[in-house]
Design a protein around this nucleic acid. Structure first.
Lengths: 157, 157
DNA sequence: GTGCGTGCAAATTCTTTGCAATGCA
DNA sequence: TGCATTGCAAAGAATTTGCACGCAC
């Protein structure tokens, strides 16, 4: 459609799509960047409210949907439940979710072509996209687990 | 934990986990097998009701959760919305969702080790699991698209 | 016979929408 | 200034829970 901008920042994406950069949207973006793990709409609301006390929850939903549309945030799906959001780093990327603390990492080096070819051969579908999300343990949680191998050491409620 | 059964059928999984096979659960399983695309809880309810008219919606939710727990069904996530279910074919597998009609294929030949290694190197996480879902076009939708290249040809409402 | 599993309906949670007022471009 | 955007509150959808009864084992 439109020429992709050189600048993949959220602000640039907004501008490229013809959206305004309001105080509320800055607050939502700030909350997303502040959190180093996937956040739900409710968590964004809570975090962003400290920067913008009159923020409404409906605005958070509207903003998150809009940000996902322009590619500034990515939706993260849990195995059980869905709907957490993380800010996008680059053009295409995938998320790694820590099973210990919920922290989210993002990586871009992904060559899915062999897997996609295998899938196409096995199912007869032509493959044109993929959603990949890895689970693992972040460095910090590995350290904690070493220190206390007995406890499960879950941090997120 | 428990020794995995040789038989990966849903009934065997239920029995292995100590769950009873009731009329309602048979109806839910039947509905899942009957549908060749991912179905939501509401759709399962509607389909299963023809085999079991006194089925309650709450039971569908309870049953789907239980089936997911024992690995008899897999949750499918849409890019926008979540929570559709497909029956599991084998021990480990992934789903391919047709963007035209919503039909779901499953494939098992997946070697994610290179991707997981790359992710570990880039993020510092130790990777222990992956959720992969491909999107593409099934054979039937490709044929339809060839016949009518103009229309988008979406089938699902 | 014993509990697990169920139906029903109410309760709860999550998300969306309408509309007048506001403020960014 | 013009129109996208917002807050509030109410509507709506999706999901869960409590409890007495029925049925698989």
């Amino acid at each position: 459609m439109t020429e992709p901008p050189q600048d993949w920042s959220a602000e640039a994406r907004l501008a490229a799509a013809g959206h305004r950069l309001t105080r509320q949207r800055k607050a939502v973006l700030g909350a997303l960047l502040q959190a180093d793990s996937g956040v739900t709409a409710a968590e964004v609301f809570q975090l962003a409210r400290s920067a913008c006390p009159d923020l409404g929850l409906a605005t958070v939903y509207r903003t998150l949907e809009m940000l996902a549309e322009v590619g500034a945030v990515r939706r993260v799906h849990g195995d059980d439940r869905c709907e957490a959001y993380v800010p996008t780093v680059g053009g295409h990327g995938h998320t790694v979710v820590c099973s210990g603390c919920g922290r989210v990492g993002e990586f871009t080096a992904c060559d899915m072509r062999p897997v996609m070819a295998a899938a196409a051969a096995e199912t007869g579908f032509s493959i044109d996209g993929h959603f990949l999300q890895l689970t693992g343990t972040c460095e910090e949680c590995r350290a904690r687990r070493r220190a206390d191998p007995s406890g499960v050491g879950k941090v997120r409620s």
